[in-house]
Design a binder for these strands. Structure first.
Lengths: 250, 250
DNA sequence: CACGCACATGGCACTCAGTTCCCTGAGAGG
DNA sequence: CCTCTCAGGGAACTGAGTGCCATGTGCGTG
């Protein structure tokens, strides 16, 4: 929850948040499919056209922060050192997703109930999860490039990590956000590490939070040049999507 | 009487096949999104309303046999004996999917190319794969009901089996259906069994495989505009984050 | 044979998501 | 004052998916 944060980059567009708030209010009181985009923009008091300037589709308004979280995860993996144990590293990366859910438990629980009952949202969530999985797999493929069956190992471990993470996350969401989600996720990921890690995790009680999971804000590292290819007049979300598909080629 | 097949439900309506054929013809010659349902029904010579009687959505016409395959897999798992080793059993179940793909290699390769380039079809395929994975997980959950963390083990192993299967399957599809897909899938599943099975499969030799074709270059399309963002910042992944925060708001 | 019934199909109109095009108004700058 | 830009709004369009009803066709029953 940001409200009036002091972070310089946190000047979130009020319109975006207003749309999310209006959408969830209507989704909760009359259901997702029974709510049209016109209803949302009417409640938010903005034009219909503006909705699609901020969200590529009606489904995206349900997952307003996943784009950001995926970027964080990708940055986290890109900032990895050579001596990081790969499996442990992707487990830590997966924890970032849990962190995002835990930032706003009541919102996450509401969203979980929504996605659970609306097939269209469930399908959309799958595509979101798939992008996380591909990010993990891409990192592992790089680390396993010299091993035999490196790509296979990478894909399988990435899938296992995502499945373990989601197993713990969903059980936490089903319990309405009660209990310590971090412990549950650590335990689940420990199982995966015990199956795949070269140095398996002992049945550890619970280590303190990893030292630096949060990537530094933008503009702290010098000398980087970035080339982006975008269609003329393309909306923002399309550019983001384009970059991702380019980076995470199958 | 039902002509060739003895199964009572297997009397395939000719209309369904005609729609699939017409759809793929148009998808291949002008693309998925550029083909409307009206185009398909016009080519097939049937009414538009009939299309949606046979396929719940436009996407379903691309995966006309997955429903049957999923039913086969569920039946296969339901017919399991108590003394079947669970991990081996789900690996065998996964092979059913490969079998379906191998029934018609050229069709499968065409469909793979289609789903690879159309995001909407990719998302739809994810939901199909998810149902296979849930079927495997449900079986394993039953078998692991007495073990500690049975649900977790079941979910992780199901995800690993699906990932391994898809890794081999997609590599076979990328090679245009050349080579023995069964061997590749067996090898991939063997890796999963060696990680999870109580009686791991013996290490198998890996067959030589031609490298994957080069991914399509980006930025070559004429309607594209190249935007260069030069900034003292983090690597590419950060840009996703930055574009979102910088452009979307403020 | 006639009638009715079930069922498959086609046609029409409607809702709604998503897009395209154009208009407006509010600044920035000459 | 004029112009240029740009964020937002509005109207109209495309296309997927649905509901309703008319039609044809086969089939059993009286």
């Amino acid at each position: 929850m940001n409200s009036s944060s002091s972070r310089p980059e946190a000047a979130k567009p009020p319109m975006r948040d207003a749309l999310v708030a209006a959408a969830f209010q209507l989704f909760l009181e009359r259901g997702y499919e029974q709510t049209t985009v016109d209803d949302i923009v009417a409640l938010a008091g903005v034009g219909r056209r503006s909705f699609f300037r901020y969200f590529p589709s009606k489904e995206d308004v349900v997952f307003p922060d996943h784009e950001r979280c995926l970027a964080d995860m990708t940055a986290f993996l890109a900032a990895s050192e050579k001596d990081h144990e790969p499996v442990r590293r992707v487990c830590d990366a997966a924890r970032l997703v849990l962190l995002m859910y835990a930032e706003n438990p009541s919102f996450s629980v509401q969203r979980y109930r929504l996605t659970k009952k609306v097939p269209g949202l469930r399908a959309y969530e799958l595509s979101v999860v798939w992008r996380y999985e591909r990010a993990l797999a891409a990192y592992l493929r790089g680390r396993f490039a010299d091993r035999p069956d490196g790509d296979l190992r990478a894909d399988v471990i990435a899938a296992a990590v995502v499945a373990a993470h989601n197993n713990a996350l969903r059980s936490w969401l089903r319990s309405d956000g009660q209990g310590d989600a971090g412990v549950a996720v650590d335990h689940a990921l420990g199982y995966v590490r015990s199956a795949f890690d070269s140095a398996p995790a002992a049945p550890q009680p619970l280590p303190a939070q990893p030292p630096a999971p949060a990537p530094a804000p933008i503009g702290e590292r010098p000398e980087d040049v970035v080339v982006v290819v975008a269609r003329r007049g393309a909306p923002l979300w399309r550019v983001v999507q384009e970059i991702e598909t380019t980076l995470a080629q199958d």
